[in-house]
Design a protein around this nucleic acid. Sequence first.
DNA 1: TAGATTGTTAATCGATTAACAATC
DNA 2: TAGATTGTTAATCGATTAACAATC
Lengths: 235, 235
Amino acid sequence: MKMNKSPSIKRLPFYLHELRVLANDGKKSVSTTYLSNLLEIEAIVIRKDLEMTGAKGEPRVGYNVLKLIERIQKFLGWASSYDAYLIGAGSLGTALLGYEGFTDYGLNIRAAFDIDPKKVDHIIHNKPVYDIQSLKESIEESGIKLAILCVPTSVAQVVTDIIISAGITAIWNYSYCTLQVPDYVVVQRVNLAGNFALLSMRMAEGKGATKSSVSARKNQNTTDPTSSDIIESKA
Amino acid sequence: MKMNKSPSIKRLPFYLHELRVLANDGKKSVSTTYLSNLLEIEAIVIRKDLEMTGAKGEPRVGYNVLKLIERIQKFLGWASSYDAYLIGAGSLGTALLGYEGFTDYGLNIRAAFDIDPKKVDHIIHNKPVYDIQSLKESIEESGIKLAILCVPTSVAQVVTDIIISAGITAIWNYSYCTLQVPDYVVVQRVNLAGNFALLSMRMAEGKGATKSSVSARKNQNTTDPTSSDIIESKA
DNA sequence: TAGATTGTTAATCGATTAACAATC
DNA sequence: TAGATTGTTAATCGATTAACAATC
């Protein structure tokens, strides 16, 4: 049984999302063939991924939707919520503050920190924004271990050093730079550029296909959730 | 020679970024060992990736910085600029409009489209925001082929159908849903959830490492740019 | 020369895919 | 039973890693 494969892990949230929709619709069970059609991922791939979570299906029937949701959530550690601080409430940080989908990941942004006096001590998307001066103290007092880093590249390393010294052990890095951190700190890096690189390569290939030359067959292959656009650290 | 490996392609923008910094500093040549230290990617991996672009290095010296930049840009198709429309100027869309780094990817957002009268016909981050009613016409007239999709999940498919009928052939999908598109349309999907899944799995592992129990050895392994957090379509 | 590097070939590792047995 | 499905085992494919020759 495979235990920790990144491509598989990255696909799990897709299953989870669809399963929640199904659960909402009152569906009791679901087959991998059904999910396969929905997500355009091969059924055998889905089955292998689910195996990793320890989920058990029933031949001829499929998987129990609620049990499967529970399994995946537990496997990902999304059953309970991670508290986090968001650092840098610029345009990207503000967008993330407003992203309600994070609760689906079991992620709870408790507060944001910024240097801009116009933002400090205000509320953005229902989250308090504090002065970055108080960041170290807040981390120490709250015991929060996870930081979402959205500061400019120029200060990313300095801020990183500070938050690590305050007790942060996991960083979701939206700043476009390689952070120097001690071994025990986990950094997960967002790589929008890499994602766009894949898109532009595929646009460039083109294969001469234009709208008019295209067959009318069922659309497919538009999404290969094997890879993605954000970078992770080694385990 | 490997020709189209996604993990490699996603790493290229990292090299490009550092190379530009080096070029700015007036550095003439660079070795893969140097880049390796900077990016925490194995030198042999970098060499293999560069080989893919057709770049040639000089034993004992390294690669010419400017030539390498040119090579990578050409390989990625970033030498000339892609014009794009951004659809949905909500919090995420607004953040992307303000992201100046896109010019580094050869991406030029020409305008945004939204349904909100408070935004329509205004300027956000120096980009005009038009009524989404005029989207179809604008695509047809401008001949723009690339759309950055930031609309709510509930309308993503409808909007997708419209823009494809208007001539869009490539979609960078920030909406969290699987889009149904014809074969000739390329969809690159952002998978923040998958990225966070990797982070939370690694946080959960933990291995009991706490700040105090940690060795002081040189930080490393904090970034493995092999995978990322956004999803791509099949070629 | 010794050493730092590129570039090439082979080996290993890991993920996907295929085949098919088992289930009811 | 036939058929839809899960689950398991083996085969294939692709990416990384290792080893080392070539260069100056």
